[in-house]
Amino acid sequence: MIKLIQNEWMKIFKRTGTYVMIGLLLFVLIVMGGFIKYQDSKGSVPDNSEWKKGLQVQNESYQKELTEMGDAIPQEVKISYEREIAINKYRIENDLSPNEEYTVWGFLTDTSQMIEFAGLFTIIIAAGIVASEFNWGTIKLLLIRPIKRGKILAAKYLTVLLFGLFMLFILFAFSSILGMVLFGFPNDPVPYLNYYNGTVTEQSMLLHLINYFGLKSINMIMLATMAFMISAAFRNSSLAIGLSLFLMFMGGQLTRLIAIKYEWAKYILFANTDLLQYFEGAPMVKGMTLGFSVTMIIVYFLLFQAIAFYVFKKRDVAA
């Protein structure tokens, strides 16, 4: 199995396209770093000594809006306001200024948006890893080895996951280094304030970021799995890339739209992939729980894998 993965890895990294992707990722991070560094007007509350007052005012306006709107306010907005208020209160009580200096942590939080970018590249690899073998005609030589088809496909899937992990690692590592060089490391460790179930807790920033990266990658893994499934079942990388990217950008929006009207939206994959909604926001459809989403993700995952393996194992290689 390790040898098979080694093979797949070699085939990915002997192609120029892969380096272009990595180069693009690094380039975007550098541009982002440069932009933030030289724009340099961060900080929401201008006067340092007055921050408590500022937060107070902010809270009051949130509170006012909440009471005025009453039930008309969307669930999501309500929860986000409540969260803001709770965190602001916690800051005032515990004397934690929001005007932290912009450091490596801030940069990492900003660059974590780039996970989608890493995800995009992983999708491209996933979409090509089976379909390309068919395009190149090499599948004929690949499948006449003393290795079962299922094992070859499994090796390919594991390689996709490894590649995704590798992209995340590059993103995380490079942002950390770049952030430290450009913005420096904070003197006192700044805690991350986590709001969950109505209470605010302090969390180490590193732990929070790892958490955040992990939860965000679920979406990426599911999309890559879907692209992989299309690639293996339909042998068509363009279809796999096209559909996956479309759903990556539009899936969430579409689900949100459907969710306004229909409750069954909660069974759609994209209503469930963002597990962050349970920790930092409101679920997309009322009544969804973390357990439900995890179950749905597992169900979809198994479904994708079942289709991919079933079709790939049965298929006649005639092309």
Binding site: L4, Q6, N7, M10, K11, W136, G137, L141, L142
Partner: peptide, 21 residues
């Protein structure tokens, strides 16, 4: 049919690839 190989790799790397299998 035709011996389709990974064109972006060297002949040797192609052989290593199949040897691993």
């Amino acid at each position: 049919e035709n011996p389709e190989m990974y064109k972006f790799m060297s002949g040797y790397q192609n052989l290593v690839h199949y040897a691993r299998m």
